[in-house]
């Protein structure tokens, strides 16, 4: 009430009932948002709750929501029963190399598409976007045979090497970003005698940090979460990634849900941490794909 009278003549446009209606609207939005948040969070709460349950509190009805006592030891049991440290190291190696490869090769290619005019450019760009529509399953068998002939089966190579040749979606994202960098910058650098590599690495890359970070986060997440690739290409346990390790673990501890949930939670954790650190890049990355170049 006070606030409205203080607002003075500007509040004239708002009808008297506006404040009350607006409050009802806000309240209902909050209620909706909170109810939905509850639905989204409950599975995660159940995950954590199950992860710290003593074995005799799993198969009970009604369910135990807050385990008593919380069995933190489950994490130790889960993570030492298989060489999860090795799996984590393997996953990290693959994910880091994939990320580096994707960011640099995609930025490089994006610069070519964004800043040069040459015959065939538009056709090639459309071909590149069209590859996004090709279902990966059709490439599975021939790629496998190719890597088999190259002797790359049971190595990380099939998972890492393709990342160094530009990924269509990331090229598209970065190109959109590059298109918004004023060409005058490049022209000025030309006049100063800078070469293309200098312009690319000293002007375009530093100006696109947010786009590159978004791509880095997306590729890291993609590599960390990948299952099909490691499933097909890695046979020996010492090369397993965390995702493969988790299915192996499930096969051994079938229906020991506390251990399975503990292992699952640990494997999810890095993604959650990365998300909270880089969340504005996540959302931005997706928003960027919507901006027109």
């Amino acid at each position: 009430m006070k606030a409205r009278s203080a607002a003075g003549p500007h509040s004239v446009r708002v009808p008297v009932f506006g404040g009350a209606r607006r409050r009802v609207y806000r309240l209902s939005i909050y209620l909706l948002l909170m109810a939905t948040s509850f639905c989204f969070l409950i599975p995660l709460f159940w995950l954590i709750s199950s992860a710290v349950k003593p074995s005799d509190q799993i198969f009970v009805f009604p369910q135990v929501w807050i385990p008593h006592p919380a069995e933190w030891n489950n994490f130790t049991i889960a993570l030492t029963s298989l060489p999860f440290g090795q799996f984590a190291l393997n996953t990290l190696t693959i994910a880091v190399l994939v990320t580096v490869g994707n960011v640099f090769s995609s930025a490089f290619v994006a610069y070519g598409f964004a800043r040069f005019r040459f015959p065939g450019r538009n056709v090639l760009f459309i071909v590149m976007l069209a590859t996004l529509m090709v279902p990966g399953q059709i490439l599975l068998v021939p790629q496998f045979i190719m890597y088999y002939k190259l002797g790359w089966i049971n190595t990380f190579a099939p998972l890492i090497v393709p990342a160094f040749f530009g990924s269509a979606f990331y090229v598209f994202l970065i190109r959109q970003f590059f298109m918004n960098i004023p060409p005058e910058l490049k022209d000025a650098a030309y006049i100063d005698g800078a070469g293309e590599w200098t312009i690319f690495s000293r002007i375009y890359l530093p100006l696109s940090k947010s786009a590159l970070t978004a791509v880095a986060i997306f590729s890291f997440q993609g590599a960390w979460n990948d299952f099909l690739g490691p499933l097909i290409y890695l046979n020996s346990q010492k090369l397993y990634t965390l995702q493969i390790g988790l299915t192996e673990f499930e096969g051994i501890f079938h229906s020991n849900w506390n251990y399975i949930m503990a292992a699952s939670a640990v494997i999810m954790l890095p993604m959650i941490v990365i998300f909270f650190i880089g969340q504005r890049y996540f959302i931005q990355g997706i928003l960027m794909s919507g901006t027109k170049g």
């Binding site: 939905t36 948040s37 989204f40 599975p43 995660l44 997440q221 960390w224 979460n225 299952f227 965390l242 995702q243 988790l246 299915t247 699952s264 939670a265 494997i267 999810m268 993604m271 959650i272 998300f275 996540f282 959302i283």
Partner: peptide, 11 residues
């Protein structure tokens, strides 16, 4: 709302 979308599908 977004969080579950980026968690590993296996887990």
């Amino acid at each position: 709302f977004y969080l579950p979308a980026l968690l590993p599908p296996v887990a």
